[in-house]
Amino acid sequence: MSKKELITFVEEQVQVTDIPDFKAGDTITVTYKIKEGNKERLQNFTGVVLQRKGSGPAATFTVRKISGNVGVERIFPVSSPFIEKIVVNKRGVVRRARIFYLRGLRGKKARIKEKRV
């Protein structure tokens, strides 16, 4: 086995694979664990996926939502043990893999067309 194959082999062993398939433009809800002192509770974060980045255990995704009048973005590692579950609420139609243009848009302009299934 080559070096690269061995690295991939190790990465596959630690990677989390049971997350749903989603991409930029989709609206998702991430349920993640928060530690406060020694208590643990769950919190939801619902928003639009801006990008998926990286590969293997280093892969992350960015979710953006408008809270109040302020845009809030969170970056989650895909394999993080803090992520309880991910639900895909809406499939969006976008033309690129990274939709950073959404940051400059507000209100009606920031809508994303929903994918017809």
């Binding site: 690269k4 061995l6 690295i7 190790v10 630690v14 255990p57 280093a58 590692p77 993080s80 043990p81």
Partner: peptide, 20 residues
């Protein structure tokens, strides 16, 4: 062999080296 990363039980992303 090379380096990669993995998560510890308390959620930290640890850098690690693979040795054959």
């Amino acid at each position: 062999i090379g380096m990669t990363s993995m998560y510890s039980e308390d959620g930290k992303n640890l850098p690690c080296t693979v040795i054959e």
